[in-house]
Design a protein around this nucleic acid. Structure first.
Lengths: 194, 194
DNA sequence: CGTCTATTTGAATGTACTCAAAAGCGGTGG
DNA sequence: CCACCGCTTTTGAGTACATTCAAATAGACG
């Protein structure tokens, strides 16, 4: 198991002693998923916090009409899951699925809780991690309530150019909250106007 | 200063010793704001984490055309601020403003950081607090990208009936990401259909 | 009471969706 | 290696959702 990336991820916020690092490593569970395979399926309980070491995933909600709405993408060095399900250990509303063949490091809820109790430093890490992603989510909400679809797409493309290349367009449309047909028209319009 | 509410808020997640409680109380700064007064003004640095003991506030973004877009409301027992500005201590993009005459307990960034260092338990508290609000935000994002304005309004009204009564309609429209005129038409339509 | 802001109403416009069909593209098996 | 199948993307016409602008009405506050 390659722990370098995840340890670097953690050490952006906290500095670990050898003991803390060893304990942390001991609760890591590497796992691989094939493209289109579920990491979490709606209805199941999300048992793990998932750190991506390789590949790409998405979390999404399927509405009553069967339409998918993507909440999040994750690539290398990102965390993903269904937080609501994970913290309450109740059935997930979201699916988490591999967009490419993917390698994860998983941490079981009980192991993470024990880690927090044993080394409160990890509470700090996790707090700062979530704080950052709160800020990202807030920007997304503001984008959703204040911009047109075209503006949202341009903003997305600006911020996540590296992601756009790895994703089918209909996923991006779903993330932006528009239909794939309309995104196609937006792209055509942008292409001709420049 | 009435510290009962905030101590109860904290003790939903952690249990405090007398020492911890006293220290925590010692860094609290009560402050009152009049209706329409800014707690944070865009461009300023958000210096405090704000806990509401009485009243109602909103945080919002003003776009290039001068339109306001409301990110969050907060009433008694809620926390509010500009998290991006607070954690990085850089100028705020958001305004935080009293919707009613309001009483807050404020905690200075430096004091909060010291609290986290001295009593890591508060890292835990803050982590769990933010985790909960992440889940709320995720639901909001899904609502924004998957529902029509009417459905979003009904969902809002369902979940925040107590809030709706204290807020002008144009604030709710702004929160939902629609124009006040359109919200008025939605309400009319709902009223006739039932 | 008067002023200012919030809400309602309506007509015209623009934004985004639906449905259907065609074209493009990638993966898989023969 | 090519042909085929399924899925994604494009395109267009028609429709529904939501905004803009303007004016009238209603409410709140000093």
């Amino acid at each position: 198991m390659d722990t370098e990336l995840i340890l670097k991820n953690v050490s952006r916020f906290i500095t670990l002693t050898d003991e803390e690092r060893d304990y942390f490593v001991s609760i890591m569970r590497p796992r691989t998923y094939r493209k289109r395979q579920y990491v979490v399926q709606a209805g199941d309980v999300c048992k793990y916090e998932n750190f991506v070491t390789k590949g790409c995933l998405r979390s999404y909600f399927v509405d009553d009409n069967g339409f998918e709405h993507i909440l999040q993408f994750a690539i290398e060095d990102w965390w993903i899951g269904d937080m609501a399900s994970f913290i309450t250990q109740t059935p997930a509303m979201l699916n988490v699925e591999a967009v490419e063949d993917t390698e994860l490091i998983q941490i079981l809820k009980a192991d993470l809780d024990a880690l927090f109790d044993k080394y409160p430093k990890f509470d700090r890490f996790y707090r700062e991690l979530i704080q950052k992603s709160m800020v990202t989510q807030q920007r997304r909400i503001l984008s959703n309530i204040s911009l047109t679809a075209e503006q949202r797409y341009l903003a997305f493309r600006n911020q996540y150019a590296f992601l756009e290349q790895r994703l089918p367009q209909n996923y991006i449309a779903s993330y932006l909250g528009i239909t794939p047909e309309f995104l196609s028209k937006i792209r055509k319009k942008i292409a001709t106007n420049s």
